Amino acid sequence: MTAFMAVTARILASVAGMGLFVLTPTVPAAQADSCPTAEMFTAWMDKANDDGTVEETIETPEAGCVVTVTERQHPVNGTLSLTAKGGKLTLKHQNDDHYGFIKVKEGGTLSLTNVILTGADSSSTSGGAITNSKGSVTLTDSLVTGNKARDGGGIFNQGGTLKLTNTTVTNNRAEAQQKYKSSGGGIYNSDGGTATLDNSKVTDNIAVAQRVSEDDDLNAYTASYGGGIYNSAATLVLTGSTVSGNKIVVEDGTTAYGGGIYGAEGAVTLKSSTVTGNEPDDCSGTVEC
């Protein structure tokens, strides 16, 4: 039971003249056409992890809602489904620990509909808005924007299942706190993971290659991969989707590959999709555009 969960006292019985009270935790519910609070969001996550499943449909006002969450990275071990019915529900992460926003662990399931994820800073590790470690993540009619991480500025999918439908990943940044060759400005997909994008966009994301040493010979091996998407030993399928305007920023002595998509082994399939206008190139590695 967390400090954020509402507690309801119910009298269940009276034994030997003494009242027996059982405290039953209940998850707070958002009122119709109102915005949930950060405490509600935390309570939903805790409830999903404790009891297995939480499914919430939030009647948001047409103007949308902004919920600022200040706690450190939230784990998801159970099943959490949030749907904003009305205006967009913006979940803004504001924390200085540099460990990202939501981490879906093995066996965990996260489903978000009509949601914006923004503000996460995971520059000391991977996965800005979402880290999916052998779990399942589904984003529908959603937006991942304004996040930062060492790798996977928007989303880091490691051995998990990631599905985006009518979703945009834009203006995220892969850049480390310390000197590092960051990759996957928008999405980082690796280690047997499967990422499926349907009618979605990956645009205007950035990966940064930094000099690791004053020794030019060492910097010759420093490169960043995938300004938009980095795919390594994993499966990536784009259908009716767009990858554009992404780029890799390099410091002197470093190199860049795959401004749009970089493939290192694995399989990349493009169906009726466009990869264009990325810097320094659209596709590289095992990917052909």
Rank of each mutant, 00 (worst) to 15 (best):
R72W: 03
I155G: 00
V268E: 00
T222R: 00
A176W: 12
R10V: 03
N132S: 12
V250P: 09
I116P: 00
I248T: 03
G185H: 01
Y99A: 00
L12Y: 14
D46H: 15
Q158I: 01
L80E: 11
G192R: 05
I187G: 01
V287L: 05
G153Q: 07
F21G: 04
T286C: 06
R150P: 10
F4R: 14
G153N: 06
T53R: 15
I11T: 08
S111A: 10
T235M: 01
S272E: 03
V104T: 11
V76R: 01
G186E: 11
T168V: 09
S126L: 12
S142G: 12
D50V: 11
Q177G: 04
R72K: 06
T255R: 08
T170V: 14
G19R: 10
V104H: 01
A233C: 08
V275D: 00
N199Y: 02
S126N: 14
D281L: 09
S244R: 06
A267E: 10
L270H: 06
D51K: 15
L112Y: 00
E265F: 03
T167F: 04
L89S: 11
A6C: 07
T286N: 08
G153P: 03
V268N: 02
K47P: 01
K47V: 02
N95C: 13
G184N: 07
N172R: 06
S133E: 09
